[in-house]
Design a protein around this nucleic acid. Structure first.
Lengths: 347, 347
DNA sequence: CTGTTAGCGCATTCAC
DNA sequence: GTGAATGCGCTAACAG
């Protein structure tokens, strides 16, 4: 009863052959009109179209894939689907791909490198036309090897600086961080702390660059004690902020390199009875859903996540069409969003 | 340069035929060991395995799909990928499927009914073995028709009550709502308001049932003015809560049927200068990421989202294996999570 | 136990 | 313009 047999009333899905015979033409002709070839007589085209409609025919993509070599699928590897950050990129990718009638095949890696590698291996073998790798675990070398195999892919948010030839899209991390820092500076802050994410990742490195550049051009001497490392999580962000706030000479503002850690900083501040933002300004990075929701609402740097996903898709599409990419490394603009977590320092 | 040609150094991916000749057997034999058939001599099996490893061979799933009739893909339709709610379910599904070496093909519907229908149509035609429909737009009739076609699918979070025969998984909405209401009741609240989501959806209906049941069994007369409809969004939740709070005799507690609306309620209360939770208790539903992050942290009903996703996957897997499902309609337990947004009413 | 023979549904040379 | 023939890589009977 839970077992739907091929069913009696149900018209079995028709094949190209049936359409052909119904239209009184050969399957080759049907294939032609299906693929919009120009060399078909209008009359025959109509006949075929009618047969297609009558039968409710849809081309079997599997068969087409095997024959034509293109599957219409794009693999997307990502560490974690449930992370809103990736979900937002993924949404952009899926949507852009959809518009080209292509679909996303998900392969969550769960941060398991081995898993990622074997996955990619399988992806390549006939199941996908290409892939989009989000925050890939793969080393530059592995990526280059993959490229050498001729498998088209684009990376989003590279963990480490990538080789020249590897197409990648990321956010303008440095300039975003610069804007955030300048904002703090212009409010009058001078003792500004930074909570890095994983220090080795490109995103952290770039943001730190922007942070330092802003301080430097304002003639502010950066206190090394005010730059601490963390791991992008709320909990660790809270710990890092706590340490900062317990310093003999604590900062008046904290720039956390993502919203999670900024939220942790908010907690640490609250735990110490600090009034926000009067006694401590906090800036995040990402502009996650949470940023607008916490109290006080977080001033943060917005990453165009969906856009990044779309861009990655469109780069990949161009690769698939053998087009030359004018720009292999795309960096999308970030934007400072000022909310309630920043204010001038107390005199 | 951006055009990775088949590449010279790159070994073209080998086919089963090459493996066969390398191992000195027929392709049928290779196919057998690849699929773990028992009827192969250990010696030949070893020889084949070695050849497979040597060549770095991976079976072409497309070809297998066309031949064997199974694609190894499961389609997942969902309104919005970026919504954390669906992302969490999706993660569970993808993970469970992955363990069976199957993959998820994404088809976001963007709430477009037409789109959903044609999508499903295509999904069925050879590209997927089955599907998981999250909060499907399809009517019961359409779903039944689909079932009649013999296409296996499972729905997660049905919008309307489904026909008996349609496999579905959802959360224990009624009992969750009952628990939430009882919690408020036991705190001493008597004027308890409810902000429904979209009133027609099963989730709302069920939660309302639970809400009313709890009130009834506590002997509390429900005031119709305290039950208002909304749409599951923060903004509308805020409006609804505002209206409630502006009542001549406002409620002392609000049970919002999801966390978004609860967060809206928090805002409305704050806008009116109410102290939380002393002057207003708020309970949500979902236990989203945000719930733990807002101030005050939200007391809410936790939905086992990932579990729901996994369960849907495993039901589908069973359908695919022609197993009979003992239970077609699975309801996963919810759990009250008490945090800081609820307290006894002021005397 | 293993090899041979047929397709799966479609795209794609070729002739006509 | 259109049709017949061939193959994509693999699985699935059927023989032996």
């Amino acid at each position: 009863m839970a077992q739907p047999e091929p069913a009696q009333g149900a018209k079995a899905r028709s094949t190209i052959r049936e359409v052909a015979s119904a239209a009184g033409v050969s399957i080759a002709t049907v294939s032609r009109v299906l693929n919009g070839r120009p060399d078909v007589a209008p009359a025959t085209r109509d006949a075929v179209m009618r047969a297609v409609r009558d039968q409710g025919f849809t081309t079997n993509r599997t068969a087409r894939a095997l024959s034509g070599g293109r599957t219409g699928f794009v693999g997307v590897t990502l560490p974690l689907i449930e992370a809103a950050y990736f979900a937002r990129i993924l949404a952009g990718t899926a949507e852009a791909l959809h518009e080209q009638d292509m679909r996303v095949v998900l392969t969550p890696t769960l941060h398991l490198h081995d898993r990622a590698v074997t996955l990619l291996d399988r992806l390549m073998h006939g199941t996908t036309d290409g892939a989009i790798l989000m925050l890939p675990e793969e080393t530059n070398e592995e990526l280059k090897a993959l490229r050498r195999l001729g498998y088209p892919f684009v990376v989003v948010d590279p963990r480490e600086p990538l080789d020249e030839g590897i197409p990648a899209v990321s956010a303008a991390n440095a300039s975003g961080a610069r804007a955030a820092t300048q904002h703090l500076l212009s409010l009058g802050h001078r003792r500004i702390a930074a909570i890095l994410g994983v220090a080795e990742w490109t995103a952290s490195v770039e943001r730190l660059l922007g942070f330092r550049a802003a301080l430097a051009s304002a003639g502010v001497l950066a206190d090394p004690a005010l730059v601490v490392e963390s791991d992008f999580s709320i909990e660790e962000g809270e710990k890092a902020a706590a340490a900062l706030l317990d310093l003999p000479e604590p900062p008046t503002a904290i720039f956390a390199f993502n919203d999670n850690m900024a939220i942790g900083a908010l907690r640490a501040a609250r735990a110490r009875g600090l009034r926000l933002p009067e006694e401590l300004s906090v800036v995040g990075f990402d502009d996650s859903e949470e940023a607008a929701i916490v109290t006080p609402a977080l001033t943060t740097v917005r990453q165009p996540l969906a856009e990044m996903g779309r861009m990655a898709a469109s780069l990949l599409l161009r690769l698939l069409e053998n087009q030359t990419l004018e720009a292999l490394n795309v960096e999308l603009a970030t934007r400072l969003v000022v909310r309630d977590s920043t204010a001038p320092p107390r005199p």
